[in-house]
Every structure is written in structure tokens, then in C-alpha cells.
Amino acid sequence: MLSIEVNSLSKKFGKFLAVDNVSFNVNKGEVFGFLGANGAGKSTTIRMLCGILEPTSGDAKVGGFSVMNEPDKVKQKIGYMSQKFSLYNDLTVEENINFYGGVYGLFGEKLNERKKWVLKISDLKGKENLITASLPGGIKQRLALGTAVIHNPAIVFLDEPTSGVDPIARRQFWELINDISDRGTTVLVTTHYLEEAEFCNNIILINAGKLIAHGTPATLKKDYLKNKIIEIECDDPVSAMNILSKEPFVDDTSIFGNNIHLSVNEIYNSKTQISDSIKTNNKINIKRIDPIVPTLEDVFIHLLEKGK
């Protein structure tokens, strides 16, 4: 069953086309990853799906309602956590929860029950009276997520919920996303951390407003990347990468931490081609050359390179 159907959605700001004819579907209850660099058009798309930004053309059905014609009905179905920090820093934890509960028309017993749940998922039980500004970043984000879904919406949009949060807190946040999705809520989450895409059931990648890839993490790796990926560990990886990128057997190069990833084509047949190439040109010490299973990042880098 589909939760979201996006049909040729576009948004122009003046003459600038921020979202360019994007179409995709999201299944009920899945975690749907929306990936792209800064400025790719993720937030703009989400705003249109939430009914707060009118599309220039195209339409989308969210929870069965058209964002173009029935934005008010869409709003009844969704929760949204915007990219900007959406809680009031000058209110306490409980005041924030009460406010968002009230805005969604919750009160009395129902509000108390949901408040307990929000406090539980954000680890803030007993700390209801703390001023929100004083909370650590990861906790704030979980509290923001809790308030965004306080009314138990069928669909929730999370816009870069993990940006600027430390890696451990990010892991915890993703566990929370999975919990929410396990209860049957559809989660559409944007991120520019490519590695987070592995946690999603389905992914789309957009670049400069255009959709450039669509699928599960596994199919993306299979379908979009026919090349093998070779990982090289060596001194001075930047120089080594520059040398290798000129070789005919190499399609793309990228740096992952201290390692180089090469995407090699059919001309490639053995490691010695690589070591010879580096040695004839320079005296860089090679520690290791291994073929690896491609990550999604390799896929995306390959796709983005192709798109240029």
C-alpha cells in the first residue's frame, strides 16, 4: 500500500528550478531515505509534501490526499520535524510537549499518555522542568522527534534530523526511527550522510533538483554500479589518487578516510596494474590493495560523477 505518491513535482523560485520533475512512491510503514547534497532540493520537496509550500507544477498524494488541492487534509495525517531546530529553547521540556500536544488538539488523559512516551524516547523522564536550551544536542533532536509525532501521525517527515549530532547519538536516533517505523508509521527522512542510507528500506538520490537514483540499498549497488571497487591504503593518498585517475582502467576515484576507492572497468585485470602505475610515477609506499564490496557511497559517487 502506498503512503506517498509523488507525480512530476516541480518547484521554481523565480527562475530557479529547485525541484525538477521528481516522481517516486513510498510504501506504508517503510523508512524511506531521501539523499542529496546541500541545496539539492530535499527540504523544498518535503515542504511541498507537507502542504506548506505550493508546488509550481505536478502533484503528490500524501496519506491519500492531494497536496495541491487538500493541503489541510494532508496536515491531519502527517508529522514534520523541520531542518531548523523546532523546539522553543526558552521553554521547559514539558512546556514544549504541552504546546505541541495542544497544537495538535491533544489534552487530558491522551496528552498525558503521549507525554510519557515522548519523555521515555528522549530519556527525559524526571527532567520535565529543564529548560530546553540546556539539553545536549542528541537529546534535543529526540525530543523534537517525539513532539513531531506526538499525535501519532500515519506519516512523518524528518528533515536532516541527524545533522550536527555526534555519531553515537546518530546511531541512537536511527534506532528510534526504526522503532517508530515498526509501529506502522511511514518515515521519510532526508540526510546528507550517505552511510545512513544503509538503514533505509528504499532510497532516492537527488542532485540539483533531479532524481538520479531510486531503489533499495541492495538493488542500487547491483543496478547502478557494474564496476568493481578496489580499496587502496597508502601514504599520500591524494597524490596517488591523482596519478590513478589518469589510468584508462579507472572510471572514478574517491577518498574514504585515509583510503582510496577506485571504480575500475573491464580493462582492469590485476592489482599489479595499480601498483605499477603508482610506482612508475612516484615513490609512494603502498600498504594494501583489496577488492571490496561496494558501499552505497561508492554508488552515489559514481552516479554523481556520471551526472556531471
Binding site: 506548506i52 491531519q76 523541520s82 531548523k84 531546530f85 523546532s86 523546539l87 495538535y104 513531531a148
Partner: peptide, 11 residues
């Protein structure tokens, strides 16, 4: 602060 967006997204 961007909180108005959060309110407009609610009913």
C-alpha cells in the same frame, strides 16, 4: 527561529 513552519504544518 523556524518554529512557525512547525506550527503551519499542524492543523
Amino acid at each position: 527561529r523556524g518554529t512557525i513552519e512547525q506550527i503551519y504544518v499542524s492543523p
